[in-house]
Write a protein that binds this DNA or RNA. Structure first.
Lengths: 188, 188
DNA sequence: ACGCACATGTAATCAGTTACATGATTCT
DNA sequence: AGAATCATGTAACTGATTACATGTGCGT
């Protein structure tokens, strides 16, 4: 039955609706367009989530009839919805779900001030750094007795982590430079 | 209750046992050492999986008593287990679960012949390439109207995909060079 | 003709986490 | 004193997928 509690997508979907009113179908299409970044949820996730948001008065629906096909149900965020969303965005990051949560926050990042974004990237950076350290340690501990496959996997993990770290550090450098240039929170 | 059917970890755990007999606790420690590469499953996943493997006669247990603490239960793969494992490794790749499935296959890669490994890396490469294309398309379609957050996310995704692609292509180049040098399937 | 895009929804099922239960030993 | 490591296990809960149900219009 799925009693949608606080699923990962719940707040993300809310965030998408904050930017633009959409139907469930639209939401799915949008997520699809992000490829592997977020695992695109199926309708079995999206529709019930929308119903739950509606139930909680965080969104409203407008039924748009169409000739010869089911009516579109366009969802719009409410004031309460915006409140809930901002609370979520402000929150220190769910962290647990790792990559996906990170990307979702990233996509919705414009709302949060520049330093919120910086904090978010910085948290991710320290997570990835930890990961990198963990892998390096594993490589060291296993030493000779590691199988070729294990070695490959470690090598892969280290390479990916390094790549992500340099991207993050690069972005962070740019962002703090911009922040220095303009004292207050300013838009681009 | 969890009627462990064909969970992702089922075959991976089997693969680990093929390399070395271990207890559930050991398995968990091993997975932990890989940091974010595989989301380390909890005991609530590991123990039931082990019980299921036992039930299916793919592994056997040896109970090793210890003074002042619960006995270790060391699991060892059976002939049937090895059969099942090889069937899984040979299979075209579950693909669906993406990254994790890829890494798991990678770790167990030594068993498969060199060209099996190449095929595996190559599949991943085409997946990541598709993903890259999808993202690039999204960026183009959204154009001006994309929010800064969306742009950032796309940029991030493209950077990660590119990094992964170059790693994969690099590895593939090395591997096929080695393969050419030694006609038959040979070990390093 | 067949499948895909459009468009919504529900129920069954699976997979995994969290929390609980138990208990000694070693590090901080 | 309190936390972490060692060591196993179960039950309740949550989150998400898969498969089903329904139906038109368009492209190949």
């Amino acid at each position: 039955m799925m009693a949608n509690g606080n699923a990962i997508f719940r707040h993300f979907i809310l965030g998408l609706l904050a930017r633009q009113s959409m139907s469930g179908y639209d939401i799915r299409r949008f997520m699809r367009s992000l490829g592997l970044l977020l695992g695109s949820p199926s309708f079995g996730t999206i529709y019930p989530t929308l119903h739950a948001l509606l139930e909680d008065d965080l969104v409203t629906v407008e039924v748009v009839p169409q000739p010869n096909r089911p009516a579109r149900k366009v969802y719009t965020i409410t004031t309460a919805g915006n409140q809930a969303l901002h609370d979520w965005v402000a929150r220190p990051a769910s962290s647990k779900k790792g990559l996906k949560a990170f990307v979702m926050h990233l996509i919705l990042a414009e709302d949060s001030a520049r330093d919120g974004l910086i904090a978010h990237l910085d948290r991710r950076r320290s997570e990835v750094m930890d990961h990198h350290t963990t892998l390096a340690q594993a490589a060291e501990e296993w030493g000779e007795q590691a199988s070729p496959g294990q070695r490959l996997a470690i090598e892969y993990g280290l390479a990916m982590a390094s790549a992500e770290l340099s991207w993050l550090e690069d972005k962070l450098a740019h962002l703090s430079a911009e922040l220095e240039a303009s004292p207050a929170t300013e838009r681009v």
